[in-house]
Design a protein around this nucleic acid. Structure first.
Length: 582
DNA sequence: GCCGTTTTCGGCCCGACTGTTTTCAGTCG
């Protein structure tokens, strides 16, 4: 089981305990442990294989009780405590919890009083007017529950960052136009560049909050007003996205931005540090007694806590706070560090634009090279290239480069392929053709659900092929649409390190493959990564931003990212070294 | 349940908003 699966069980145990006995510190301990597990760089199964229970106990927040529970889950796949709790309280807790306004206490009351076990029961009880008569509930909460169920039935979940971030940016612009608004900043998980976001958090600096609130709740895209207070409001837009707005005075901007950016666990860690220093940190500032000693800027808050400034992408309380204390944070790859793009499709297969047009678009963005990587013949539906066609394409690339040189451009188009990995791990083009290419990417487009051992063997065979340079979108997942291929990532990365194969971070918003956790595994093993757009259209180069964000979330530095290097260095790394050891 | 340069007991982040209450519990972030 992977860390997300283990964390899921642990979190549910915490939730059942909350319903059972109220918000206890025991329940909190499980919840925090789940958060910790999700942000670990190493798979827990690896940790356990390496050092057993002792290694588990070294993780902060894991003590005797949780250690035993984790050991049981790792070795047997289930937690007897989890099973026991589910038997004692036979309700669909994850579903009920996802209804806005329903928490553990209300879920318990609904079960005890009305035997509500799932969303269907809940809806029936609400429609039947049975909820409003319960103590602690009323007409309004019944209506709210009904709206919450309706919303869930529409199937809206977390939105892709690639869809949400443009909304956030246009909201920033809208709010900035308002009179009296001095700053409008997108915070929350979108600022941390999580791959999906549950809502948008907008922070506004203005002397008077009321006019901003009035505008905000009356925007044409607003479908429902969820909250409307003096300094804080929340709405749901017609596209399903929830937007929270907070208005603060200028002297609190930094503190509020920090608080509103999160993550929750990062904030808790900071507040703990403040407390240890006899200070208090909240969204209005950092205080000694009643005196604010920081708050105007985020930088000021971190400095006053004697911490290095932590880039938003790292704020997950997964080791960054400790490193910030020692001024040991990594120098992350920057948003303008990429020199080239190593995965680009053209009209030779399923891309929209010609090699020329793609080159022009990349040049306009300041890149120095692209690698043309059209699909290969097994993908017949997309017009995948066979030996003959790809040799023709190489000739066209030579012609394009000649034109670029004649025009006095330094830009280069390199020859490549997105070569299909066949079921047995062999590649879709013969060796002699692959040998003529500058960059060979290999990727999975079929047999996504082979059993783990077969998939692992298939992948290792493909990426250790002497011609394979980069493993494109390694897990082949599509966020909210297709699960990741199941293979042993540790074994694959070890093989990649040995063979000198690079792992890709595909920047397309619904792929973002590898994940941040997997990127961190690469970085810690010295496996290099490439951040590619996977562009199928000249407009798609803009998605590189999301790939860079993902790499930063995976703690990648410039030296870890081969297309942040000059082209010659990148090519000599791919073609020269057999392994990273040299 | 976890944790420890004021430690092995007694703490555990902090505040806004809502709805149902007569001062606050529950939820959310």
């Amino acid at each position: 089981m992977d860390n997300a699966g283990i964390a899921g069980i642990i979190r549910e145990v915490g939730e059942y305990i909350q319903v059972d006995e109220g918000l206890s510190f025991r329940a909190k301990a499980y919840d925090r442990a789940a958060e910790t597990i999700e942000s670990l760089a190493e798979p827990l199964t690896e940790t356990y294989a390496r050092g057993g229970l002792v290694a588990l106990l070294e993780i902060k927040g894991i003590g005797r009780g949780l250690g035993d529970a984790l050991e049981e889950i790792i070795t047997s796949g289930v937690s007897s405590l989890h099973e026991e709790l589910k038997r004692a309280l036979p309700i669909d807790l994850p579903a009920l919890n996802s209804v806005q306004g329903l928490g553990p206490q209300k879920i318990r009351a609904l079960y005890k009083e009305l035997k509500v076990r799932n969303l269907e029961d809940l809806e029936k009880a609400a429609v039947g007017g049975k909820i409003r008569v319960l103590t602690g509930f009323g007409e309004k909460s019944e209506e709210k529950i009904l709206r919450g169920v309706e919303f869930l039935k529409r199937g809206a979940g977390r939105m892709l960052l690639g869809d949400a971030l443009p909304w956030g940016r246009s909201l920033e612009k809208e709010l900035l136009k308002l009179k009296g608004v001095r700053k409008a900043t997108l915070a929350g998980s979108a600022r941390r560049r999580r791959e999906t976001v549950g809502d948008l958090d907008m922070l506004v600096v203005a002397d008077e909050a009321k006019p901003i609130m009035d505008y905000f709740i009356a925007m044409p895209d607003v479908e429902e007003i969820l909250a409307n207070g003096e300094t804080k409001s929340a709405v749901r837009l017609k596209n399903g996205l929830q937007v929270d707005l907070r208005v603060v005075p200028a002297e609190s901007y930094g503190a509020a931005l920090n608080y509103f950016t999160g993550s929750r666990d990062h904030n808790i860690a900071l507040r703990q540090i403040a407390q240890d220093k006899g200070l208090k940190l909240n969204e209005y500032g950092l205080f000694r007694g009643d005196v604010a000693i920081a708050g105007f800027t985020e930088e000021g808050i971190y400095a006053a806590l004697e911490l290095e400034f932590v880039p938003p992408e790292l704020r997950e309380n997964s080791g960054e706070v400790e490193l910030a204390r020692e001024s040991g944070l990594p120098q992350l790859v920057g948003y303008s560090d990429l020199c080239g793009d190593l995965q680009v499709q053209t009209s030779w297969t399923d891309g929209v634009h010609s090699i020329d047009k793609m080159a022009d678009a990349a040049m306009a963005l300041g890149l120095e090279y692209i690698v043309v990587t059209d699909h290969t013949k097994r993908l017949a539906m997309m017009g995948g290239l066979d030996e003959k066609k790809i040799r023709l394409q190489m000739k066209e690339i030579d012609a394009v480069n000649a034109r670029l040189v004649a025009a006095g451009k330094k830009f280069r188009v390199l020859k490549g392929s997105e070569c299909d990995i066949l079921k047995d791990g062999s590649l879709d083009l013969p060796d002699d053709v692959l040998a003529e290419l500058d960059v060979v990417g290999v990727s999975i487009h079929s047999y996504f659900d082979l059993p783990r051992d077969k998939q692992t063997a298939r992948v290792i065979k493909a990426i250790t092929n002497p011609h394979a340079d980069i493993f494109f979108h390694p897990t082949a997942r599509k966020i909210n649409a297709r699960p990741a291929c199941d293979f042993d990532m540790v074994a694959v990365l070890d093989a990649a390190a040995q063979a000198g194969t690079v792992m890709e971070v595909d920047a397309f918003p619904d792929r973002l493959d590898l994940s941040a956790e997997h990127i961190r595994m690469c970085v810690s093993r010295g496996v290099k990564i490439a951040i590619d757009s996977d562009a199928h259209d000249k407009a798609h180069f803009s998605v590189l931003e999301y790939g860079i964000a993902q790499a930063r979330r995976g703690w990648a530095r410039k030296e870890d990212v081969i297309n942040a290097w000059p082209v010659e260095k990148m090519l000599s790394m791919l073609k020269g070294a057999q392994s990273y050891g040299k």
